[in-house]
Design a protein around this nucleic acid. Structure first.
Lengths: 194, 194
DNA sequence: AACGGCATGTAACGTGTTACATGATTTC
DNA sequence: GAAATCATGTAACACGTTACATGCCGTT
């Protein structure tokens, strides 16, 4: 159910096609919310049917056309409502920690691979998030710049501060996961030498 | 797909009924992997059909009966295989950070509620996880004690160390989320006084 | 006999994933 | 003209959630 609000969030900046959104949700937005096109296209149509979006066919080349979606007042209001609701309680489902709890079942070399991949995964995320944070701080992120252009100047500070706050939180999480993986690798070492 | 391995993990200790497992997955196990009974019962039947579990009807009172599931050699092997595989790449889907990125859309008092609930959520988890860690360190967790009884003494150290490692990681994560929520509340304060 | 816990399930729905399928446009 | 990218979808399946439904057991 959050997918639609993630879509609305992006569309508050400017109208986009399903393809544009699908690109975003594989690249930058993907690190907070990821979605494949096969989920995005039907969701957009549903949202248009419900009046949250207004779709229009835009010609594209001589014969081609593409459907562009603009957020409606109703959609903007739905987004605002969602933003004022508390976050739905989320249930823990954590494959990494589930697996970590039973690592004695893995061969030591495989346990090491598992933890190294955990580390690599969050190292990659850390790099992505860090460069996003730099883009925010230097106002070089295209979407953010467009968002500022359409917002009232008195809100600029808040808009930037909350994006920064988000990425700082993600970065802290990634750093913590990397530390945790390192501690696990040390633990494995201690069993090897023992 | 991890649900079945979470079930297998518990069943490596001793045979249990769907009800037993469902209790565990709402209480202790729930903080690493949660599942409702409506998901557990069908999954157990599927796993029995696939030969991972051996089910047997156990009489329960004069007329009642319950189905108890024991892990089979095949099930134990499947669990071992899974434990030696890397963790499937997981995609980011984080409602809290998604919402945080657009907090300028929420009324300040609602933003405060959102962050306070985030803090309360992780504070509750932190308490649960901390008491679980104490149970591990003092060897007072019933499942862990049973697990040690059926394991070779030379593995005891590893078994305990990995459980401790898991909960230490979860605790660190909870503490980080609480800190993050606090920083967000301070940020909101700074906008109020400004 | 009433109650709380034990025990097991179905049905409907929503969400998410993977694979398949097609065709136009732009760039080289 | 080949390749990369733009553009949009369907179908099948897996996973997960919520609500509903039933009935026995042990205790009071």
């Amino acid at each position: 159910m959050s997918l639609r609000y993630a879509l609305l969030a992006v569309l508050t900046v400017e109208p986009m096609t399903g393809y544009d959104l699908s690109k975003l949700f594989q690249q930058s937005v993907a690190h907070v919310w990821n979605a494949p096109d096969s989920q995005i296209y039907p969701e957009l149509r549903k949202m248009e049917a419900e009046g949250l979006l207004e779709g229009s066919d835009v010609p594209w080349g001589p014969r081609g056309r593409k459907r562009q979606y603009a957020i409606s007042d109703e959609g903007r209001e739905a987004f605002r409502l969602w933003m004022n609701e508390p976050i739905g309680y989320f249930l823990e489902r954590d494959p990494a920690h589930l697996k970590a709890a039973y690592l004695e079942w893995a061969e030591p070399e495989n346990a090491r691979v598992i933890l190294n991949e955990h580390k690599a995964h969050f190292t990659a995320l850390l790099q992505d998030w860090t460069s996003r944070l730099i883009e925010i701080n230097t106002l070089t992120n295209p979407l953010l710049v467009k968002r500022l252009e359409i917002s009232s100047p008195k809100d600029h500070q808040k808009v930037v501060a909350f994006k920064r706050y988000t990425y700082e939180g993600l970065i802290a999480r990634a750093e913590q996961e990397i530390l945790w993986a390192d501690r696990g690798l040390e633990l494995l070492d201690s069993f090897e030498t023992a």
